[in-house]
Nucleic acid binder design. Sequence first.
DNA 1: GCCGCCAAAATGTGATAGCATTTTTTATTT
DNA 2: AAATAAAAAATGCTATCACATTTTGGCGGC
Lengths: 225, 225
Amino acid sequence: MTQIPDIPRSVDMTTQDYAYFRLRNAIMVGALRPNTALTFRGLAEQLGLSPTPIREAVRRLSSEHALEVLENRRLRVPEMTPGRFEELAQLRLVLETHAATRAFAYLSDVTIDTMARLDAQMDGAVRNRDLDALTRMNHDFHRLLYCLNPHQTVMPLIESIWLQLGPFQRRVIEDVDRTYVIDRHKEMLDAMRRRDLPGLCAAIERDIEDGSIRSGRQMLHGTTG
Amino acid sequence: MTQIPDIPRSVDMTTQDYAYFRLRNAIMVGALRPNTALTFRGLAEQLGLSPTPIREAVRRLSSEHALEVLENRRLRVPEMTPGRFEELAQLRLVLETHAATRAFAYLSDVTIDTMARLDAQMDGAVRNRDLDALTRMNHDFHRLLYCLNPHQTVMPLIESIWLQLGPFQRRVIEDVDRTYVIDRHKEMLDAMRRRDLPGLCAAIERDIEDGSIRSGRQMLHGTTG
DNA sequence: GCCGCCAAAATGTGATAGCATTTTTTATTT
DNA sequence: AAATAAAAAATGCTATCACATTTTGGCGGC
């Protein structure tokens, strides 16, 4: 019963960091499903570590709202409700278009080429049905753009939203044929090549709308928020 | 040398929570100035606690970007630069107008009255030059509005931005006559009474612009970002 | 069959100690 | 006086332990 996937650990990585990234990954790929009851000591035992670094890792994840520390000595991945999903999705729209706007001035042809290569790799992941790689590369694609701005303040917030949507988003992409996401990425690249900021924001909005919001609403029984 | 102000501690509060809120408050009121070198053990000694809960508290604050954990075994409050300030301020604009928009449907007369009372109390704090209370009540005023939406996802992000602006904002309001902020609050209340969402967002933008951005830019040697 | 009660197990929490590493200080040399 | 080397102090990290509290499981009474 390997409920929490292992991740590579470099030699200079502290145990606390290792626990953090391993739990974070487990949440992101859906290995820890919402509403699963967890305990500090249980996690420590399961990862083969002492409780101390586990507590630090969980506190961090709790600050990012990827885990909830309940009153009854239990931890859990927060549940997704239609209301919360709608809020997270709208927040994602606002934050990512804002991040794109603030990054736009730093856009260069070499960046666009890098993003185009990443997008091409994603086509392969789609064919192989490698959902983990697909999720990771999709995040990388967006992050490459947003992180062009050297004074980073938005990106951590976006990462937090991604993390909160992660466990649910995973279920979404398992069910839905999602070639359209690729198309939206192509639209983003086209707008970037034209140095068309409104077009870029519109493409990002469609990307999020098509790849997350529409299917998410559908899965949460047809709520239109 | 009481560098870190004490705060009340209820009996059921864990040491880790106490350390978190005490450090958070110290950062917010400017008791820990940017670039001050701190250590885990030093903080533990200064607060009279063991390192374990201190570490958890610092990890939380680090996740909220209120503290940086450096490579050289030191902690510090992040430094404010013109670029970072501009990013944080623009982010505050986007997040707070978005939060107001998402909260608008839940607005009621009783809420408006409560906010009006809070605003009236702020006038007293201005007369007494009680900057701690003023900061706290200003946050309370905005939070009352944004938290009307029962599916909260934005508020934690706004709190993080407030915290990052806190140490610097403190220096700003120490220097500047800030009666205009009160006027902007009145404009917000008027727009809310008219159930005028665009007017409310415009008032929020002016509130942030006047109370933070303009003077902040001025203090950071005339950058206009 | 259901509810309250009591013992036993489990849990969160925080202080402590030992270890490895880094930083700082002191001593020595050029 | 400056640079280098060695010694000393400080620091981060994590396993462990003890304590208080809570949860759990079983038992008897209604």
